[in-house]
Structure formats: structure tokens, C-alpha cells
Nucleic acid binder design. Structure first.
Lengths: 186, 186, 186, 186
DNA sequence: TATGAATGAGTGTTCATTCAT
DNA sequence: GATGAATGAACACTCATTCAT
């Protein structure tokens, strides 16, 4: 990707999270990126196109982060834990991207086409869960409820360790995962 | 409260949730409320004062909703469940207020003074949890993590039933609570 | 005059001089006067009517101040000096009224009708001068130039003693008058 | 200077003199200058910055006008007369700039920093006068009083010839100067 | 007579977007 | 591709004025 385009995406990510879509002006994005205002509109036709690009970009980064070390051979719990931990660490370490996804997931600025493009790549998650349910390791609950619970506990954990970064260690992280696992396991 | 002031709060609540703070113009709020733009500024000195008033108002409504039938005499689990269910029902039924609190909880438009005013009334939650922990019914985990997990599972559940309202019934709601309870209990 | 009406005139005088006509809001005038906004509009149909009333009022006060001890019997110079000193003292002591007259003398907010009403009472000044000229005590210069010179030197003197109030004494005041008198006398 | 910036200064000068600072809207200035409202704020951050720029600009023009043909070699009276006449002609011919300086000299819209910047260049006036006083050609009166008298008689003269332009000729102008000179000379 | 809530046109200023260079 | 001056619609907020009490 063009260097200035990447600078613009980085600046926009930071500012959109901090001040929202309408709270951030294109001139401020350009200034933060260190380019002229006109340059922004060379790379993105409109402000909306910029935020949609950003949405696809951050979702892609999330997908990479959570599937980087996926190993189908493993046990269900290990595999799930790996996924959960990767997601949670992404939330803590790539705070801006994680926040961005949460805030703009259900915002009107992201077109449904963009959401669709981003979502298709996440469908494997459900498939994966279904296997676990069929294997009877976890409770018989609707797929969608499971996904929500999965996300909700990650949300809790990210929030907790963001507010108390000094408590972030393997032991506490495992404790947090156990809250989730004991909730869903039979 | 003055009738027009209440109309303005209602309109602002709906619009801020739908389109964000900067995405909602004061003239739109006034029009939605059915009053003149000047009237908004007669009751609230600035747009910021309006959203701060709204924050205090919604937090107050939440507090009323979750503590309405509190009974100290009950068992820890029943009491916790009652709280969890009240909160979750508030999230589903008073969707706008619930969303508003979530969205603007960590927004820069709400002043720290306002947050402080609102938060003091929620301190009992922690006190309540501490009793349960001391009674050894639930896992030994930091207070703050417990609160986050409590809120995270409510978040999951509200999201789920909002997306699938046809599945909202006592049985499914109990199932959701069990995900939470089995997570935290020893 | 009604007490609240007088309070409003006083407040308006002070504020109009300080911040100008458009720079002063009717609500600020009312607040400074200690009355409700509606009350202002009970006594003055519009803001313009208020400033026109104020113009007539201040001009009247000026006229009273400069003619209070007029004595036709005196010599021309004594009489002129008396007038000049009264005017100058008015400018120093009733600073707000003096400033108001200067600022709004040629402003579009004062209607020509108002100016006419105020001016008719000042016509004696010219008559008075004509006598002096005929008596050959002072230079043969157009009436209107004389009036301007008269006002200009008062303007100088008021400015000077307003900036340096500690220098205000009879000797210095006489020196200032001599600048004027030596200028016009033959 | 940028062409549109100059157009804006010209329009603002005319309108501020005519209708005052608050009486003139930025949109009217832009329209009069023939540019878009946004353009005004592209060149001047605020309306205040515009009027401050204007103040520096008009003072600079005045300084140029009154010192253009200064010749130290001349006699005190000739030199003073030249200065007095230049100033007076500036007042009559550059009426808007002259009026602007008078009106906004003591207005709260001009910051003290701006006044300071403008004033430093006028200090030579006083130095010049001191020489005359030391040479005993004119009365022993405080510097500051002399300056005020100087300005006051210019004020008179400008007013007179502005109201009676048909009387403007060398003879009458010399008569006016004599009023001033006979006032200050021994 | 006095009040102050209500009005809506108008204000200073911002901002996404365009376009000539 | 990159720039930044220029645009004008839209924004938060103000204000003279009205009117029911």
C-alpha cells in the first residue's frame, strides 16, 4: 500500500476511536498523518470510504491475529482457548483496532456491503463451535448465544486488563478464561 | 420536570444512540422534540450540558430498574440473579437508555464530574459482591474482574435477545444466566 | 419617571458605552438593571426606542449641565469660558453620558427625528457665538468651524484629564482653556 | 498580500466604520468582498483577528501618509504644519481609515498587543514636539496635552470640511491651522 | 405592571469536498 | 501523485421580541 495512504489509515484509526466519526475532521486526519488535505481525497473518495476501508483493514488484522497459530489437530478446549486468548490479547495490545471494531461494528457509517465483506471471513468461527457442541463437551445452547457469550467474556477481560494493566499475567489470564469455560462446559 | 425539557431529553436519547453526539444536530433534537431550537438552549446551556443531564438521567433510571425489588434477606444466588435479570431486562426493554449508557460511558463528552455523580450510587454493587465472595459461594477473583464479567455476560445476553427477540422466554433467559453463574461459582 | 425605567436607562448607558449597541444584549441590560427581560419591553417598545430615549436623556443632562449658571450679563470671554468649563467638567465627571453622546451622535441607531429633537435646544450656542464675532473679540471664521473647534478642544481636554486625572486642577484647566482662547481670539 | 485577503480588508473597513463591529456580520463582509464566507476564515482565524489586522493596516497607512514628506531641516512651524496638514488631509481623503482608527482606538476588540505594535511607531511624534518646546517657540504645556490638542484640532477640522466639502480650499485650511497654531504659540 | 419561558431568524465558525497548480 | 486555497452548506449558539400568567 502507498505510504501516505497507510499514514492516513493510522491517523484516522487513532482519531476515530478517540473522537468518533463526526468528531474527527478530515483536515485533522490529514494533519495528524502529515499530509495535505487534498491528499486524503486522492486516496479515499469520501470520508465514508475512508472509514469503510479502515473497517475492512482492522477486521483483517483481527482475523490474522486470532488465526495465526490455529491447529485443527488439537483438542476442542485447547483450540478454543487459543482462539479466546489470541482475541483477548489483540484487544489489549491492538487497543485502537479493537475499540474501533467495537464502536463502529453497528454504526451507520459502515455500509452493509462492507460489513458483509468483512463478515464472510468470520463464518468459520461458527463452524468450529458446532463441532464442539456436537462432541458434547459444552452446553447445548444456540450457536448465536455462544458467540455472544464468547465475545462478551473477551470484552470483560479486555476491559479488566486495560483498567488494571499491572495485573496482566498468565495466571490471571487463565483465571479469566476459566470463568468463560466453566460457564459453557457441561 | 418541565414538559418540554423531558421531550428534549427523550429526543436527544433516541438520536444520540442512533447517530452519535456529533452526528446529531441540536436543531434535529429540537425538531424531534417538537420545540424551537432556542428552547433547547433555554433548558440546557450547551449541547454538552444536555448530554450530561441525559447521562445522569439514564443512570438513575438504570439504578431504579435494577434495585426495585431488592431483598437483602434472600440467598446470594437468588439476589444476584434478580439483579442480573433486572439489568438484562432493562437492556432489552429500555434499549435506548441501555445503549446510551454503554456508548457514552467512556466518551469525552461526559465530564468526570458527571461520571463521579453517577458512579457513587453504584458502589453498593461491589459491597454486595464482596459478601458473596466471603461466603465462599463463588470463585476467588478480584472484585473488579467480577464486575466486568457480570456486565460482559449481560452485554452478551442483551445482544442475543435483541437480535433474536422471538427466542426471548424464561427458559432461555435462565439458560443465559446459568452461563454466567456456572462461570463464577466454585 | 418610573423607578425600573430609570434603572434600565442607567444600565443601558453603561453597557452601550462599554460594548456598543449590538454588543449589548437586551437580556444583559435587564439583568444589570435587576429586572426581567419582559420589563424592558414594557417600558421601551424596541431596543432602538431605548437607545433613542437614552440619547434624548443624555443630551438633556448635558444641556442642563452647561447652562446651569449662564449669565447673559457677563463679558463674552467669561461667558464662553463658563460654557467651555461646564462642558469639559461634564465630560470628565459624567464620563458615560459624554462618551455615549460622542459615540452615538453619528450612529445609525439614533433616528433623525431624535437627533432633530435634541438639536433644536442647542441652537442658542450658535446665536451666542455670533454675538461674540460681531463684537470683534474673536477671529472671523465660519460659525460651524468655530463650533467644531470649540468641541474639538473640549474633546482634547476631556481625553487628557481622563488619562491623567492626577493633573486635574484649576491651573491646568485654565491652561487648557487658554489654548482654545488664544486660538480663536484676534 | 493575497488579493482576496485585501478585498476582505477593504470590505471590512467600510462596513465596520458604517455599522460597527457587532453590527457587521462576517457573511456581509464576505459578500461585499465578493468571496465565500469560508474564505474569510481561511485568511483570518476569527472576526477579532480580522479587525486587529485592519487596525495595524490602517495605522500603517496613516503613518505613511503623515511622514511621507517629512524634512528635518525645516523650521519647527513649517514642519509641524506639514504634519498637521498631512494628518488632516488623510482624515478627509481616507475618511474610512481615519474614522476606523478613531472609533476602534479605544475599543475592546483591538487587543492590547495590537495597540502596542501600532503605537511604537508613533513615538517619534512626541520626540518631535519636545524639540519645539525646548526651542521656546510654543507654550510650556505637558507633552500629552499638546498631543491631545493637536489631535483635537485635526478632529475639528476634518469634521468641518467633511460636513462642508465645498469650503475646502487652501485659504480655509490655513485658517484652521492658525486656530491651532495661535493656540499653542507663545 | 412585571415576569421569564418560548420562539426562530441570524451569528460566528467549521468542515467535507473540489480543483487549479 | 500531491498540494492547499476556495467554497457554501451546516453547525452550535444568541438574541430581540412575544405572550400567557
Amino acid at each position: 500500500m502507498n505510504e501516505k495512504k497507510q499514514l492516513l489509515l493510522n491517523a484516522a484509526l487513532k482519531l476515530f476511536v478517540e473522537k468518533g466519526f463526526h468528531g474527527t475532521s478530515t483536515s485533522e486526519i490529514a494533519k495528524t498523518a502529515g499530509v495535505a488535505t487534498g491528499t486524503l481525497f486522492h486516496h479515499f473518495k469520501t470520508k465514508q470510504e475512508l472509514i469503510n476501508s479502515l473497517y475492512l483493514y482492522t477486521k483483517e488484522q483481527l482475523l490474522i491475529a486470532i488465526t495465526i497459530d490455529y491447529q485443527d489437530s488439537e483438542q476442542f478446549k485447547s483450540n478454543l482457548k487459543r482462539l479466546w486468548l489470541n482475541f483477548t490479547h489483540f484487544g489489549i495490545e491492538k487497543s485502537d483496532m479493537y475499540q474501533f471494531i467495537i464502536i463502529f461494528h453497528s454504526s451507520p457509517y459502515i455500509t452493509s456491503l462492507t460489513k458483509e465483506q468483512a463478515e464472510t471471513r468470520f463464518d468459520d468461527l461458527l463452524t468450529f463451535y458446532r463441532k464442539g457442541i456436537e462432541n458434547q463437551e459444552i452446553k447445548t445452547v444456540k450457536d448465536e448465544m455462544m458467540v455472544e457469550f464468547f465475545l462478551g467474556t473477551i470484552f470483560s477481560t479486555v476491559n479488566y486488563f486495560t483498567k488494571h494493566p499491572e495485573r496482566l499475567n498468565e495466571k490471571n489470564m487463565n483465571l479469566s478464561f476459566e470463568l468463560f469455560w466453566d460457564g459453557i462446559s457441561k
